[in-house]
Design a protein around this nucleic acid. Structure first.
Length: 121
RNA sequence: UUGGUCGACUAGGCAGUCGCUGUUUAAUCGCUUGCGAUUAGAGAGAGGAAAGUCCGGACUUUACAGAGCAGGGUGCCAGGUAACGCCUGGGGGGCGAAAGCCUACGGAAAGUGCAGCAGAAAAUAUACCGCCCCAAAUUGUUUUCAAUUUAGGGUAAGGGUGAAAUGGUGUCGGUAAGAGCGCACCGCGCUGAUGGUAACAUCAGUGGCAAGGUAAACCCCACUCGAAGCAAGGCCAAAUAGGGUUCCUGAAGAUUUUUAUCUUAAGACGUGGCUCGCGUUGGAACCGGGUAGGCUGCUUGAGCGUUUUGGUGACGAAACGCCUAGACGAAUGACUGUCCACGACAGAAUCCGGCUUAUCGGUUGACCACAAAA
RNA sequence: AGCACUUUAGCUCAAUUGGUAGAACCAUUGUCUUACAUACAAUAGGUCAUCCGUUCGACUCGGAUAAGUGCUA
Protein backbone atom coordinates (compact mmCIF):
# COMPACT_ATOMS: atom_id res chain seq x y z
CA UNK A 1 0.00 0.00 0.00
CA UNK A 2 1.11 3.52 -0.74
CA UNK A 3 1.90 6.00 1.99
CA UNK A 4 -1.57 7.20 3.10
CA UNK A 5 -2.39 10.74 2.06
CA UNK A 6 -5.12 12.74 3.69
CA UNK A 7 -5.48 15.73 1.39
CA UNK A 8 -8.61 16.66 -0.46
CA UNK A 9 -7.70 18.59 -3.59
CA UNK A 10 -9.69 19.40 -6.68
CA UNK A 11 -8.80 16.14 -8.50
CA UNK A 12 -10.43 14.10 -5.73
CA UNK A 13 -13.84 15.66 -6.43
CA UNK A 14 -16.43 15.14 -9.09
CA UNK A 15 -16.74 18.54 -10.71
CA UNK A 16 -18.87 18.63 -13.84
CA UNK A 17 -22.34 17.43 -14.66
CA UNK A 18 -20.78 14.94 -17.09
CA UNK A 19 -18.87 13.22 -14.29
CA UNK A 20 -22.05 12.86 -12.31
CA UNK A 21 -24.18 11.48 -15.12
CA UNK A 22 -21.35 9.08 -15.94
CA UNK A 23 -21.70 7.58 -12.48
CA UNK A 24 -25.48 7.60 -12.53
CA UNK A 25 -25.54 5.72 -15.84
CA UNK A 26 -23.93 2.57 -14.54
CA UNK A 27 -23.33 2.15 -10.85
CA UNK A 28 -23.73 -0.27 -8.02
CA UNK A 29 -25.47 0.82 -4.86
CA UNK A 30 -24.86 0.63 -1.15
CA UNK A 31 -27.80 1.66 1.01
CA UNK A 32 -28.16 2.81 4.54
CA UNK A 33 -30.78 4.54 6.64
CA UNK A 34 -29.15 7.93 6.12
CA UNK A 35 -27.32 7.66 2.76
CA UNK A 36 -27.24 6.04 -0.64
CA UNK A 37 -23.83 5.47 -2.21
CA UNK A 38 -23.38 5.02 -5.95
CA UNK A 39 -20.01 3.83 -7.21
CA UNK A 40 -18.38 3.21 -10.58
CA UNK A 41 -14.81 2.23 -11.37
CA UNK A 42 -12.54 4.85 -12.95
CA UNK A 43 -9.07 4.75 -14.60
CA UNK A 44 -7.37 7.48 -12.54
CA UNK A 45 -5.81 5.42 -9.77
CA UNK A 46 -7.54 7.34 -7.01
CA UNK A 47 -11.12 7.70 -5.81
CA UNK A 48 -13.26 10.75 -6.44
CA UNK A 49 -16.17 12.00 -4.37
CA UNK A 50 -19.37 13.79 -5.33
CA UNK A 51 -22.13 14.81 -2.97
CA UNK A 52 -25.83 15.27 -3.68
CA UNK A 53 -27.48 16.88 -0.68
CA UNK A 54 -31.10 17.55 -1.53
CA UNK A 55 -32.79 20.62 -0.14
CA UNK A 56 -35.92 18.53 0.09
CA UNK A 57 -34.35 16.24 2.67
CA UNK A 58 -32.44 18.84 4.66
CA UNK A 59 -34.23 22.14 4.75
CA UNK A 60 -31.68 24.37 6.47
CA UNK A 61 -28.34 25.42 5.07
CA UNK A 62 -26.43 24.79 8.26
CA UNK A 63 -27.66 21.16 8.26
CA UNK A 64 -26.55 20.63 4.68
CA UNK A 65 -23.14 22.13 5.39
CA UNK A 66 -22.71 19.88 8.40
CA UNK A 67 -23.51 16.71 6.46
CA UNK A 68 -21.13 17.72 3.66
CA UNK A 69 -18.31 18.31 6.12
CA UNK A 70 -18.91 15.00 7.85
CA UNK A 71 -18.81 13.12 4.54
CA UNK A 72 -15.76 14.90 3.19
CA UNK A 73 -13.90 14.30 6.43
CA UNK A 74 -14.68 10.59 6.28
CA UNK A 75 -13.63 10.38 2.64
CA UNK A 76 -10.43 12.31 3.28
CA UNK A 77 -9.28 10.00 6.09
CA UNK A 78 -10.24 6.76 4.33
CA UNK A 79 -9.42 7.59 0.72
CA UNK A 80 -6.40 5.25 0.51
CA UNK A 81 -8.68 2.26 1.18
CA UNK A 82 -11.31 3.08 -1.43
CA UNK A 83 -9.46 1.96 -4.60
CA UNK A 84 -10.11 3.69 -7.88
CA UNK A 85 -13.79 4.48 -7.80
CA UNK A 86 -16.02 7.45 -8.48
CA UNK A 87 -18.40 7.77 -5.56
CA UNK A 88 -21.64 9.73 -5.40
CA UNK A 89 -23.35 9.96 -2.04
CA UNK A 90 -26.99 10.96 -1.80
CA UNK A 91 -28.93 11.78 1.32
CA UNK A 92 -32.16 10.02 2.22
CA UNK A 93 -35.20 11.52 3.86
CA UNK A 94 -34.65 9.94 7.29
CA UNK A 95 -31.42 11.85 7.80
CA UNK A 96 -33.27 14.93 8.97
CA UNK A 97 -34.43 13.27 12.19
CA UNK A 98 -31.11 11.64 13.13
CA UNK A 99 -28.83 13.20 15.76
CA UNK A 100 -25.29 14.18 14.86
CA UNK A 101 -23.58 11.15 16.42
CA UNK A 102 -25.83 8.79 14.45
CA UNK A 103 -24.94 10.53 11.21
CA UNK A 104 -21.25 9.88 11.85
CA UNK A 105 -21.99 6.24 12.68
CA UNK A 106 -24.00 5.78 9.49
CA UNK A 107 -21.18 7.34 7.48
CA UNK A 108 -18.58 4.88 8.82
CA UNK A 109 -20.98 2.01 8.31
CA UNK A 110 -21.50 3.08 4.71
CA UNK A 111 -17.78 3.09 3.84
CA UNK A 112 -17.28 -0.26 5.57
CA UNK A 113 -20.01 -1.92 3.54
CA UNK A 114 -18.66 -0.34 0.37
CA UNK A 115 -15.21 -1.81 0.97
CA UNK A 116 -16.68 -5.26 1.68
CA UNK A 117 -18.67 -5.13 -1.53
CA UNK A 118 -15.56 -4.16 -3.51
CA UNK A 119 -13.66 -7.16 -2.16
CA UNK A 120 -16.52 -9.50 -3.14
CA UNK A 121 -16.62 -8.23 -6.72
C1' U B 1 -32.45 44.69 47.87
C1' U B 2 -36.58 43.57 44.90
C1' G B 3 -39.80 44.54 40.81
C1' G B 4 -40.15 47.20 36.26
C1' U B 5 -38.75 50.40 31.65
C1' C B 6 -35.34 51.80 27.77
C1' G B 7 -30.67 51.17 25.36
C1' A B 8 -25.27 49.44 24.20
C1' C B 9 -21.80 45.29 23.74
C1' U B 10 -20.89 39.95 23.29
C1' A B 11 -22.19 35.03 20.82
C1' G B 12 -17.61 29.46 24.46
C1' G B 13 -12.03 30.15 25.62
C1' C B 14 -6.88 27.97 25.37
C1' A B 15 -3.24 24.21 23.39
C1' G B 16 -1.91 20.25 19.84
C1' U B 17 -2.57 17.04 15.20
C1' C B 18 -4.80 16.33 10.24
C1' G B 19 -7.40 19.11 6.35
C1' C B 20 -10.31 23.24 3.03
C1' U B 21 -10.62 28.53 0.11
C1' G B 22 -8.39 33.19 -1.35
C1' U B 23 -3.95 36.68 -0.75
C1' U B 24 1.29 37.22 -0.65
C1' U B 25 6.78 35.81 -0.59
C1' A B 26 10.60 32.31 -2.06
C1' A B 27 12.32 27.96 -4.73
C1' U B 28 11.67 24.25 -8.67
C1' C B 29 9.38 22.67 -13.30
C1' G B 30 6.71 23.80 -17.93
C1' C B 31 6.15 26.75 -21.94
C1' U B 32 2.71 30.75 -24.89
C1' U B 33 7.67 35.22 -20.89
C1' G B 34 3.89 36.36 -17.66
C1' C B 35 0.83 32.83 -16.78
C1' G B 36 0.07 27.65 -14.95
C1' A B 37 1.51 23.55 -11.63
C1' U B 38 4.12 21.64 -7.19
C1' U B 39 6.61 22.45 -2.43
C1' A B 40 7.69 25.61 1.78
C1' G B 41 6.87 30.14 4.77
C1' A B 42 3.75 34.40 6.29
C1' G B 43 -0.95 36.32 7.01
C1' A B 44 -6.66 36.27 6.31
C1' G B 45 -11.27 33.47 6.25
C1' A B 46 -19.61 33.81 7.95
C1' G B 47 -23.92 36.79 11.06
C1' G B 48 -26.55 39.78 14.68
C1' A B 49 -29.78 38.30 12.38
C1' A B 50 -25.80 35.99 6.90
C1' A B 51 -32.86 34.37 7.19
C1' G B 52 -37.85 36.31 5.36
C1' U B 53 -37.65 39.11 0.53
C1' C B 54 -41.48 43.51 3.19
C1' C B 55 -39.39 48.53 1.58
C1' G B 56 -35.32 51.91 -0.17
C1' G B 57 -30.79 52.79 -3.03
C1' A B 58 -25.94 51.76 -5.78
C1' C B 59 -24.65 48.93 -10.25
C1' U B 60 -26.03 46.75 -15.25
C1' U B 61 -29.13 46.16 -19.56
C1' U B 62 -33.33 48.15 -21.97
C1' A B 63 -36.71 52.29 -23.35
C1' C B 64 -35.57 57.31 -23.62
C1' A B 65 -35.73 65.29 -26.39
C1' G B 66 -39.19 66.80 -22.83
C1' A B 67 -43.98 66.61 -20.70
C1' G B 68 -48.64 64.37 -19.66
C1' C B 69 -52.49 60.30 -19.09
C1' A B 70 -53.29 55.53 -16.98
C1' G B 71 -51.59 52.50 -12.87
C1' G B 72 -48.92 51.87 -8.09
C1' G B 73 -47.06 53.83 -3.33
C1' U B 74 -47.00 57.17 0.92
C1' G B 75 -50.37 60.22 4.17
C1' C B 76 -50.48 64.96 11.68
C1' C B 77 -45.96 68.70 11.54
C1' A B 78 -40.68 69.74 11.14
C1' G B 79 -35.95 67.76 10.39
C1' G B 80 -32.06 63.74 9.08
C1' U B 81 -30.49 60.81 4.83
C1' A B 82 -27.95 58.69 -1.46
C1' A B 83 -33.03 57.12 -0.64
C1' C B 84 -37.10 54.98 2.09
C1' G B 85 -42.97 52.68 4.12
C1' C B 86 -36.68 53.95 8.04
C1' C B 87 -34.76 57.19 12.01
C1' U B 88 -34.94 61.76 15.31
C1' G B 89 -37.61 65.77 17.67
C1' G B 90 -42.48 67.88 18.39
C1' G B 91 -48.19 67.82 18.37
C1' G B 92 -53.15 65.14 18.87
C1' G B 93 -55.47 60.48 20.78
C1' G B 94 -55.20 55.84 23.90
C1' C B 95 -52.85 52.64 28.07
C1' G B 96 -50.01 52.69 32.74
C1' A B 97 -48.91 54.58 39.65
C1' A B 98 -44.37 56.11 37.11
C1' A B 99 -40.12 55.50 33.99
C1' G B 100 -42.33 54.63 29.54
C1' C B 101 -45.21 52.18 25.59
C1' C B 102 -48.85 52.04 21.38
C1' U B 103 -50.93 54.92 17.39
C1' A B 104 -52.65 53.65 8.47
C1' C B 105 -53.38 60.13 12.70
C1' G B 106 -55.20 64.21 5.44
C1' G B 107 -60.40 65.14 3.32
C1' A B 108 -67.37 62.71 4.53
C1' A B 109 -70.42 71.25 4.04
C1' A B 110 -66.86 68.17 -4.66
C1' G B 111 -69.45 63.84 -6.24
C1' U B 112 -70.95 58.38 -6.47
C1' G B 113 -71.91 53.98 -3.68
C1' C B 114 -72.99 50.75 0.76
C1' A B 115 -75.58 49.53 5.63
C1' G B 116 -78.29 42.06 5.77
C1' C B 117 -81.73 40.96 10.13
C1' A B 118 -84.45 43.92 13.62
C1' G B 119 -87.05 48.50 13.81
C1' A B 120 -92.27 53.37 12.69
C1' A B 121 -88.02 55.28 10.41
C1' A B 122 -81.03 53.91 8.16
C1' A B 123 -80.28 59.77 5.71
C1' U B 124 -84.91 64.11 1.92
C1' A B 125 -85.77 62.42 8.14
C1' U B 126 -90.04 60.21 9.89
C1' A B 127 -93.96 58.98 13.71
C1' C B 128 -95.40 52.41 15.92
C1' C B 129 -96.62 52.65 21.20
C1' G B 130 -97.02 56.98 23.97
C1' C B 131 -98.12 62.36 25.64
C1' C B 132 -101.31 66.72 24.49
C1' C B 133 -105.25 69.87 22.03
C1' C B 134 -109.82 70.38 19.41
C1' A B 135 -114.53 68.37 17.24
C1' A B 136 -118.39 64.67 17.03
C1' A B 137 -120.93 60.36 19.05
C1' U B 138 -122.01 57.11 23.20
C1' U B 139 -122.12 56.04 28.55
C1' G B 140 -122.06 57.94 33.66
C1' U B 141 -123.53 62.62 35.72
C1' U B 142 -128.19 68.21 37.43
C1' U B 143 -124.07 70.81 35.22
C1' U B 144 -118.86 71.50 35.42
C1' C B 145 -116.52 67.12 34.43
C1' A B 146 -114.75 61.89 33.63
C1' A B 147 -114.22 57.51 30.47
C1' U B 148 -114.43 55.07 25.60
C1' U B 149 -114.59 55.25 20.19
C1' U B 150 -113.89 57.89 15.51
C1' A B 151 -111.89 61.98 12.50
C1' G B 152 -108.29 66.10 12.40
C1' G B 153 -103.99 68.42 14.40
C1' G B 154 -99.53 69.24 17.73
C1' U B 155 -95.02 66.85 19.87
C1' A B 156 -89.98 64.14 19.80
C1' A B 157 -89.52 64.57 26.72
C1' G B 158 -90.54 58.82 27.65
C1' G B 159 -90.83 53.27 25.65
C1' G B 160 -89.07 49.70 22.27
C1' U B 161 -85.19 47.97 17.73
C1' G B 162 -80.29 48.29 16.28
C1' A B 163 -73.38 48.64 15.71
C1' A B 164 -75.46 53.42 14.68
C1' A B 165 -81.76 57.15 15.64
C1' U B 166 -80.11 64.30 14.16
C1' G B 167 -75.41 67.09 20.65
C1' G B 168 -75.07 66.09 26.58
C1' U B 169 -76.44 67.69 31.72
C1' G B 170 -80.45 70.59 34.61
C1' U B 171 -84.85 70.66 41.77
C1' C B 172 -83.78 76.32 35.57
C1' G B 173 -87.39 79.07 32.61
C1' G B 174 -91.24 78.01 29.18
C1' U B 175 -95.68 75.07 27.26
C1' A B 176 -101.99 72.27 26.23
C1' A B 177 -98.10 68.63 26.00
C1' G B 178 -93.32 69.27 24.45
C1' A B 179 -89.03 70.82 21.93
C1' G B 180 -82.07 74.87 21.68
C1' C B 181 -87.90 77.47 22.02
C1' G B 182 -84.94 80.49 25.85
C1' C B 183 -80.97 80.30 29.82
C1' A B 184 -76.30 78.25 32.51
C1' C B 185 -72.23 74.81 32.02
C1' C B 186 -69.80 71.10 28.80
C1' G B 187 -69.11 69.59 23.64
C1' C B 188 -69.08 71.33 18.45
C1' G B 189 -68.56 74.97 14.25
C1' C B 190 -66.96 79.96 12.68
C1' U B 191 -64.09 84.58 13.47
C1' G B 192 -60.16 87.13 15.80
C1' A B 193 -55.85 87.70 19.02
C1' U B 194 -51.44 85.62 21.36
C1' G B 195 -47.38 81.75 21.44
C1' G B 196 -45.04 78.37 17.92
C1' U B 197 -41.16 77.47 11.40
C1' A B 198 -45.47 74.16 11.55
C1' A B 199 -48.81 70.41 13.37
C1' C B 200 -51.25 72.59 17.35
C1' A B 201 -52.28 75.03 22.04
C1' U B 202 -54.45 79.04 25.02
C1' C B 203 -57.79 83.12 25.42
C1' A B 204 -61.83 86.20 23.71
C1' G B 205 -66.07 86.86 20.79
C1' U B 206 -69.89 84.69 18.07
C1' G B 207 -73.32 80.97 15.94
C1' G B 208 -77.52 78.22 17.91
C1' C B 209 -77.08 72.46 16.72
C1' A B 210 -76.54 72.59 11.35
C1' A B 211 -72.29 69.20 9.33
C1' G B 212 -74.47 60.83 11.58
C1' G B 213 -71.02 56.18 9.93
C1' U B 214 -67.85 54.01 6.17
C1' A B 215 -62.22 56.65 2.19
C1' A B 216 -57.50 49.24 4.92
C1' A B 217 -65.39 51.27 -0.92
C1' C B 218 -64.76 54.28 -5.52
C1' C B 219 -62.90 58.99 -5.04
C1' C B 220 -60.58 64.22 -3.93
C1' C B 221 -56.02 66.71 -2.30
C1' A B 222 -50.54 66.82 -1.47
C1' C B 223 -45.87 64.39 -2.40
C1' U B 224 -43.62 60.49 -5.14
C1' C B 225 -42.46 56.19 -8.69
C1' G B 226 -40.26 54.15 -16.38
C1' A B 227 -39.16 48.44 -16.73
C1' A B 228 -36.28 44.29 -15.57
C1' G B 229 -32.78 42.14 -12.58
C1' C B 230 -25.58 39.68 -11.18
C1' A B 231 -29.32 33.27 -13.44
C1' A B 232 -28.30 41.54 -14.90
C1' G B 233 -24.42 42.42 -18.27
C1' G B 234 -19.41 42.05 -20.88
C1' C B 235 -15.26 39.03 -23.18
C1' C B 236 -12.97 34.32 -25.25
C1' A B 237 -14.81 30.11 -27.67
C1' A B 238 -14.40 23.29 -29.11
C1' A B 239 -17.54 19.48 -31.54
C1' U B 240 -22.08 18.77 -34.55
C1' A B 241 -25.81 20.94 -37.68
C1' G B 242 -27.07 25.14 -40.43
C1' G B 243 -25.90 30.47 -42.91
C1' G B 244 -22.54 33.71 -46.00
C1' U B 245 -17.98 34.66 -49.11
C1' U B 246 -13.87 32.91 -52.03
C1' C B 247 -11.12 29.10 -54.52
C1' C B 248 -10.78 24.14 -56.74
C1' U B 249 -12.34 19.07 -59.44
C1' G B 250 -15.04 16.52 -63.47
C1' A B 251 -19.02 13.41 -67.84
C1' A B 252 -23.25 14.72 -70.91
C1' G B 253 -27.24 18.00 -72.42
C1' A B 254 -29.72 22.95 -72.73
C1' U B 255 -29.00 28.54 -72.97
C1' U B 256 -24.73 31.38 -74.37
C1' U B 257 -19.34 34.22 -78.44
C1' U B 258 -16.80 32.67 -73.90
C1' U B 259 -16.85 32.87 -68.67
C1' A B 260 -20.94 31.15 -66.33
C1' U B 261 -25.85 29.19 -64.90
C1' C B 262 -29.43 25.19 -64.78
C1' U B 263 -30.74 19.96 -65.34
C1' U B 264 -29.35 14.90 -65.51
C1' A B 265 -25.98 11.09 -64.98
C1' A B 266 -21.44 9.24 -63.10
C1' G B 267 -18.52 8.89 -58.74
C1' A B 268 -18.41 8.66 -53.22
C1' C B 269 -20.80 7.16 -48.50
C1' G B 270 -24.56 4.19 -45.71
C1' U B 271 -27.71 -0.39 -45.68
C1' G B 272 -26.02 -5.62 -47.24
C1' G B 273 -22.14 -11.71 -47.78
C1' C B 274 -22.81 -10.03 -53.22
C1' U B 275 -25.96 -8.04 -57.42
C1' C B 276 -30.33 -5.32 -58.03
C1' G B 277 -32.81 -1.91 -55.11
C1' C B 278 -33.37 2.10 -51.45
C1' G B 279 -31.41 6.50 -48.88
C1' U B 280 -27.74 10.57 -48.48
C1' U B 281 -24.22 13.63 -51.01
C1' G B 282 -19.26 17.84 -54.31
C1' G B 283 -14.08 19.26 -51.66
C1' A B 284 -11.05 23.09 -49.12
C1' A B 285 -10.24 27.82 -46.73
C1' C B 286 -12.16 32.08 -44.39
C1' C B 287 -16.15 35.12 -42.02
C1' G B 288 -19.90 36.44 -38.59
C1' G B 289 -23.78 34.64 -35.11
C1' G B 290 -23.40 31.27 -31.20
C1' U B 291 -24.17 26.08 -27.79
C1' A B 292 -21.01 23.12 -24.16
C1' G B 293 -17.16 25.14 -21.42
C1' G B 294 -13.95 29.09 -19.55
C1' C B 295 -12.78 34.25 -17.97
C1' U B 296 -14.97 38.62 -15.98
C1' G B 297 -18.64 41.35 -13.17
C1' C B 298 -16.31 40.16 -7.48
C1' U B 299 -15.31 43.32 -3.61
C1' U B 300 -12.03 50.07 -1.23
C1' G B 301 -17.07 50.72 0.58
C1' A B 302 -23.03 56.34 1.19
C1' G B 303 -16.40 51.35 4.82
C1' C B 304 -14.36 50.89 10.00
C1' G B 305 -11.69 52.96 14.47
C1' U B 306 -9.84 57.17 17.55
C1' U B 307 -9.87 62.38 18.66
C1' U B 308 -11.88 67.31 18.06
C1' U B 309 -16.19 69.90 16.79
C1' G B 310 -21.71 71.76 15.20
C1' G B 311 -26.71 70.11 16.60
C1' U B 312 -31.98 68.87 21.99
C1' G B 313 -31.47 64.53 18.68
C1' A B 314 -31.33 61.45 14.22
C1' C B 315 -27.04 63.04 11.92
C1' G B 316 -23.17 66.28 9.82
C1' A B 317 -17.88 68.33 9.38
C1' A B 318 -12.46 68.02 10.03
C1' A B 319 -7.74 65.49 11.24
C1' C B 320 -5.07 60.97 11.88
C1' G B 321 -4.89 55.73 11.37
C1' C B 322 -6.61 50.81 9.23
C1' C B 323 -7.75 47.09 4.93
C1' U B 324 -11.40 43.42 7.13
C1' A B 325 -14.34 36.43 3.15
C1' G B 326 -14.89 36.36 -2.15
C1' A B 327 -16.33 30.63 -3.11
C1' C B 328 -18.87 28.32 -7.97
C1' G B 329 -20.70 20.21 -6.62
C1' A B 330 -19.58 25.96 -3.46
C1' A B 331 -14.26 27.04 1.77
C1' U B 332 -14.42 27.89 8.93
C1' G B 333 -14.39 21.34 9.95
C1' A B 334 -12.89 16.72 12.51
C1' C B 335 -10.20 14.41 16.49
C1' U B 336 -7.55 14.81 21.36
C1' G B 337 -6.64 17.38 26.03
C1' U B 338 -8.26 21.14 29.42
C1' C B 339 -11.39 25.19 31.88
C1' C B 340 -16.26 27.10 32.71
C1' A B 341 -21.44 30.05 32.55
C1' C B 342 -21.86 23.37 29.39
C1' G B 343 -22.60 26.69 24.30
C1' A B 344 -29.24 29.22 21.44
C1' C B 345 -31.04 30.82 16.68
C1' A B 346 -28.68 29.50 12.70
C1' G B 347 -24.21 29.47 7.08
C1' A B 348 -21.96 34.93 2.86
C1' A B 349 -23.20 34.08 -3.12
C1' U B 350 -23.23 41.67 -6.58
C1' C B 351 -22.98 45.32 -2.57
C1' C B 352 -25.09 48.76 0.97
C1' G B 353 -29.38 51.42 4.41
C1' G B 354 -33.71 49.87 7.09
C1' C B 355 -37.99 46.80 8.73
C1' U B 356 -39.81 42.00 10.31
C1' U B 357 -39.15 37.20 12.30
C1' A B 358 -35.88 33.21 15.24
C1' U B 359 -32.60 33.21 19.59
C1' C B 360 -29.43 29.57 25.37
C1' G B 361 -27.24 33.01 27.93
C1' G B 362 -23.53 36.72 29.69
C1' U B 363 -21.51 41.89 30.56
C1' U B 364 -22.80 46.96 31.15
C1' G B 365 -25.24 52.08 31.36
C1' A B 366 -29.49 55.30 32.33
C1' C B 367 -34.28 55.84 34.44
C1' C B 368 -39.03 54.69 37.56
C1' A B 369 -41.03 53.27 42.69
C1' C B 370 -48.04 52.21 43.13
C1' A B 371 -47.95 47.89 46.17
C1' A B 372 -44.74 44.26 49.04
C1' A B 373 -39.96 43.34 51.93
C1' A B 374 -35.69 45.58 54.52
C1' A C 1 -29.53 33.93 -5.58
C1' G C 2 -33.64 36.50 -7.93
C1' C C 3 -38.85 36.48 -9.31
C1' A C 4 -44.14 34.89 -9.63
C1' C C 5 -48.18 32.36 -7.29
C1' U C 6 -51.28 29.07 -4.01
C1' U C 7 -53.57 27.59 0.92
C1' U C 8 -61.74 26.50 1.99
C1' A C 9 -65.24 19.29 4.14
C1' G C 10 -61.47 12.85 4.00
C1' C C 11 -60.24 14.17 -1.75
C1' U C 12 -61.14 17.61 -6.21
C1' C C 13 -62.88 22.41 -6.58
C1' A C 14 -66.86 26.86 -6.16
C1' A C 15 -68.33 31.28 -3.48
C1' U C 16 -68.33 39.71 -6.94
C1' U C 17 -69.12 44.75 -5.86
C1' G C 18 -68.05 42.66 2.80
C1' G C 19 -74.18 40.37 5.42
C1' U C 20 -76.59 32.18 7.39
C1' A C 21 -69.73 28.78 3.23
C1' G C 22 -71.86 25.35 -1.33
C1' A C 23 -71.25 21.19 -5.51
C1' A C 24 -69.58 16.28 -7.15
C1' C C 25 -66.94 12.00 -5.29
C1' C C 26 -66.18 9.52 -0.50
C1' A C 27 -68.53 8.13 4.40
C1' U C 28 -73.09 6.82 7.40
C1' U C 29 -78.38 5.57 7.55
C1' G C 30 -82.87 4.11 5.11
C1' U C 31 -85.80 2.02 0.64
C1' C C 32 -85.25 -1.82 -3.18
C1' U C 33 -82.78 -7.38 -2.95
C1' U C 34 -82.43 -13.90 -0.04
C1' A C 35 -77.67 -11.12 -0.05
C1' C C 36 -74.20 -7.72 -2.64
C1' A C 37 -73.70 -4.02 -6.43
C1' U C 38 -76.51 -0.25 -9.09
C1' A C 39 -80.43 3.27 -8.41
C1' C C 40 -83.32 6.56 -5.23
C1' A C 41 -83.90 9.40 -0.59
C1' A C 42 -81.85 11.47 3.73
C1' U C 43 -77.79 12.68 7.13
C1' A C 44 -73.02 13.86 8.92
C1' G C 45 -68.47 16.18 8.15
C1' G C 46 -65.51 23.27 8.16
C1' U C 47 -60.56 26.80 14.18
C1' C C 48 -62.23 29.13 5.62
C1' A C 49 -53.33 27.81 6.93
C1' U C 50 -52.00 31.05 11.67
C1' C C 51 -51.90 35.90 14.23
C1' C C 52 -53.03 41.20 14.45
C1' G C 53 -55.85 45.22 12.54
C1' U C 54 -60.03 48.27 9.60
C1' U C 55 -65.48 47.77 9.93
C1' C C 56 -71.66 47.25 13.38
C1' G C 57 -70.06 42.77 10.76
C1' A C 58 -64.23 39.70 7.26
C1' C C 59 -63.41 33.44 3.24
C1' U C 60 -63.68 38.46 1.01
C1' C C 61 -60.16 44.63 2.72
C1' G C 62 -54.83 45.86 4.94
C1' G C 63 -50.35 44.03 7.47
C1' A C 64 -47.19 40.17 9.55
C1' U C 65 -46.00 34.82 9.93
C1' A C 66 -46.01 29.61 8.30
C1' A C 67 -46.33 25.70 4.74
C1' G C 68 -46.28 24.46 -0.39
C1' U C 69 -45.83 25.07 -6.00
C1' G C 70 -43.67 27.03 -10.41
C1' C C 71 -40.08 30.00 -13.58
C1' U C 72 -35.00 32.08 -14.66
C1' A C 73 -28.18 29.06 -15.88
Amino acid sequence: MNTPSFGFQQELRLLSAKDFSHVFDQAFKVNNRAFTLLARENQLGHPRLGLVIAKKNLRFAYQRNYVKRILREGFRLQQSTLNSYDLVILTRRDIAVLPKTDIIRHRDNLFDRFRRKCRQS
